[in-house]
Design a protein around this nucleic acid. Structure first.
Lengths: 190, 190
DNA sequence: CGGTCTCTTGACGGAGTTCAAAGCTAGTGG
DNA sequence: CCACTAGCTTTGAACTCCGTCAAGAGACCG
């Protein structure tokens, strides 16, 4: 159990067998059906999620009443509402499975206990967070640099297999455009 | 020296005096004039910067040939091109002082040595990175949720003192709009 | 099959950009 | 300390990207 997670951690730091046992006692695993929610806007985000297989999305309901996707989390990605999780305050986002998904997760108190018991994980989570910051800086650059059409072209050439895995209206939401306009863009770029 | 930095670290973890000495040997301090650069697009980002006083901005030259600001770093903020710093690859961003600024900084190799010598700093930098991720999630939400006009109103009411500290064309750049349009918005909201 | 999602199409409208020019501010050197 | 200049801000008109609305065409699932 949590074998994907252990493998992922092992890529960044070296773990003793005893560490692995401790990790396995704190992390739980959850099987999610398509469309199952793990976090709802307004609730406290209890856990930090690691996707073993499948895909989660994080989104919120914008001021026009439509869903705006902030982030997808594929295999070996971490996801949480960082503000809600760190301060244990109500979340601004929803997190939901968009296909059959298996996730490892750890709740707030366990996370802090685990870090005390296996301090080398501080390094792992620091590296993960800094890598995610790098990704977030790149994302911001794309958002400001490219037109919506170029955003679509960028994502469809960079992640062609992922584009086919999700419905188009979710891609539109992630790109911050309407499904109608995405349809127009696709037609133009056959 | 580096006293602001030591104080900031002390807010998150507890340091021994010996730790403080080690930190002081690895961190250097730099006085920057207005408009002085600490990182240029294409160079490797050698250091992780902590702003003691003053203000830095991170920006890139977009496909229209204008400067797009990604982030400001005020007192007690960390700033770096995370991708360039972590992988020691060429940077995509510029970092520049926009007023008289004092910054503590540490280069890549020293950073990794320091973390080995003072492991409790792993916790500090993990927390800093996770807080910055929380801020980045919030920023993304604002970008997708608000019109440019509402973005301006949000920032001018949330950070009124900061708005007055920077020239308007930089605020426009940070908000992702043209100076002309910002001028129009301001006129409308006197 | 029948109904509910999803994707497409096209006409229209509006938020924000572009370009050009004029007014204003602040820094610099004499 | 003033005068000059370069850069910042404002204005307005024309334009464009993208959203809105409404309606139709597929696609999927019970």
């Amino acid at each position: 159990m949590n074998s994907n997670l252990i493998r992922h951690i092992g890529k960044y730091i070296s773990l003793e067998n005893s560490d692995i046992d401790v990790i396995n006692t704190y992390f739980k695993s959850q099987k999610l059906k398509n469309k199952e929610m793990v976090l709802q806007e307004g609730q406290v985000c209890k856990s930090y999620y690691f996707v073993d297989s499948g895909c989660l999305r994080m989104y919120f309901n914008n001021n026009k009443g439509t869903e705006q996707i902030i982030q997808f989390a594929l295999e070996n990605w971490w996801i949480t509402d960082y503000f809600s999780f760190a301060d244990q305050k109500p979340a601004e986002y929803n997190i939901q499975a968009i296909e059959k998904t298996t996730a490892s997760y750890i709740d707030y108190l366990s996370y802090n206990k685990l870090l005390k018991e296996v301090p080398v994980l501080e390094t792992y989570f620091r590296i993960i967070a800094q890598r995610e910051l790098a990704a977030s800086q790149k994302r911001l650059k794309l958002i400001f640099d490219l037109s919506k059409e170029d955003m679509y072209l960028h994502f469809s050439t960079s992640f062609p297999q992922f584009i086919q895995r999700i419905p188009q209206y979710m891609l539109a939401s992630f790109l911050g455009i309407t499904p109608e306009y995405l349809s127009e863009i696709r037609k133009k770029n056959l």
